[in-house]
C-alpha cells in the first residue's frame, strides 16, 4: 500500500504540490487525472523517489521513500516499482532485449544469462511483441516503444506499476490497445497500478478508482461511475472537457 501524507513540492517559486493526501490500496488500478502542469507526473516521481518532497511522507508498504538512508535502501524500495515513462525512455544505445533485461540484471542480481533471456522473451510476449530483441529503439514505432517500455517496467516483477500518460501521443486505436494491455497485465500479474493521464476514455476503461488533482491537492476520488456523474463542478468541467467553469485556463498567457 502506498500512502502520501501532506506532500508538498515546489520548483523555485512555483508551488506544484500543496499538501497532497492519497492512499493507494493494493491490487487496484488508480488513475490520477488533472490538467497539464498540475503536478501529476511530479506525484509519480515523488512516489518512486526520483524527486524529494519538501514536506510530508511517502510511505511504500510502511517505509518512507523520502527518508531512505542510503542508495541501497532507496533501490530496495524502487525495485518494487516498474515505471512506464511518457516517451517510454528506452535506452537508445541498447537493443530492445538489453533494455528489457536491464532491470533484471541490476535489481535482481545472480540470475543466469539464459534465464534472463527467457524472462525477456516472456515479458515481450506478454505485451504482444516477439522476435524484436535485437532491434534498436530507433527502429520501433511509438506504440511499439510503449510496449517495450512496459515490458521493461514489468520485467523485474514489481509490485507496483506506474504509468506516466501511457496513451499520450498515440493514435486512438493504438491508445485503446495500450489500455487493453494495461487491464490485461493488471489481471495476469495481479499488481497495483498507478496511472497518470488526462485521457478520460483511458481513465474510465482501466481504473478501479479515479482521483482528480487540482492546484496541488486531490479534490475528489471515486469509481469511474462516480467521477462520471460527479456533482463537483471542477470534476464535471474536467471530465466533460469544457473551457467554461471554475477551472480557468487563460486563452492568452498575458491576460
Amino acid at each position: 500500500m502506498i500512502e502520501l501524507k501532506d506532500v508538498c513540492k515546489s520548483f523555485g517559486s512555483r508551488r506544484v504540490l500543496r499538501g497532497m493526501d492519497l492512499d493507494i490500496p493494493d491490487g487496484q488500478t488508480i488513475t490520477i487525472i488533472g490538467g497539464s502542469g498540475t503536478g501529476k507526473s511530479v506525484t509519480l516521481k515523488i512516489m518512486v523517489g526520483l524527486l524529494k518532497p519538501e514536506k510530508g511522507q511517502v510511505l511504500v508498504d510502511g517505509a518512507d521513500v523520502a527518508e531512505a538512508a542510503s542508495e541501497e535502501e532507496l533501490f530496495e524500495t524502487q525495485s518494487k516499482f516498474g515505471f512506464l515513462f511518457q516517451g517510454a525512455a528506452l535506452f537508445d544505445s541498447l537493443t530492445v532485449g538489453e533494455n528489457v533485461a536491464f532491470g533484471i540484471r541490476n535489481l535482481k542480481k545472480d540470475i543466469p544469462d539464459s534465464r534472463v533471456r527467457k524472462i525477456v522473451s516472456e515479458k515481450l510476449d506478454l505485451v504482444g511483441l516477439s522476435g524484436v530483441e535485437s532491434l534498436k529503439p530507433a527502429e520501433l514505432s511509438g506504440g511499439m516503444k510503449k510496449r517495450v517500455g512496459l515490458a521493461r517496467a514489468i520485467a523485474h516483477e514489481p509490485k507496483y506499476i506506474v504509468y506516466d500518460e501511457p496513451t499520450t501521443g498515440l493514435d486512438p486505436i493504438t491508445a485503446d490497445v495500450i489500455n487493453e494491455l494495461i487491464v490485461d497485465i493488471q489481471k495476469k500479474l495481479n499488481v497495483t497500478s498507478i496511472v497518470v493521464t488526462h485521457d478520460m476514455v483511458s481513465a474510465y476503461k482501466i481504473s478501479n478508482q479515479i482521483a482528480m488533482i487540482y492546484e496541488g491537492k486531490i479534490i475528489s476520488t471515486g469509481t469511474p461511475g462516480e467521477i462520471k456523474n460527479s456533482s463537483n463542478p471542477y470534476v464535471r468541467q474536467f471530465v466533460t472537457g469544457s473551457s467554461q467553469g471554475p477551472i480557468k485556463v487563460k486563452l492568452r498567457e498575458w491576460e
Binding site: 542508495e71 525495485s79 516498474g82 525512455a89 537508445d92 536491464f102 541490476n106 535489481l107
Partner: peptide
C-alpha cells in the same frame, strides 16, 4: 538527450545510479 528523454530517470528506477 538522455536527461530530456527521461532515460536518466529510467536508470534510477531500474536500480542504477
Amino acid at each position: 538527450t538522455m536527461k530530456v528523454t527521461e532515460q536518466i530517470d529510467a536508470l534510477y528506477t531500474l536500480g542504477t545510479n
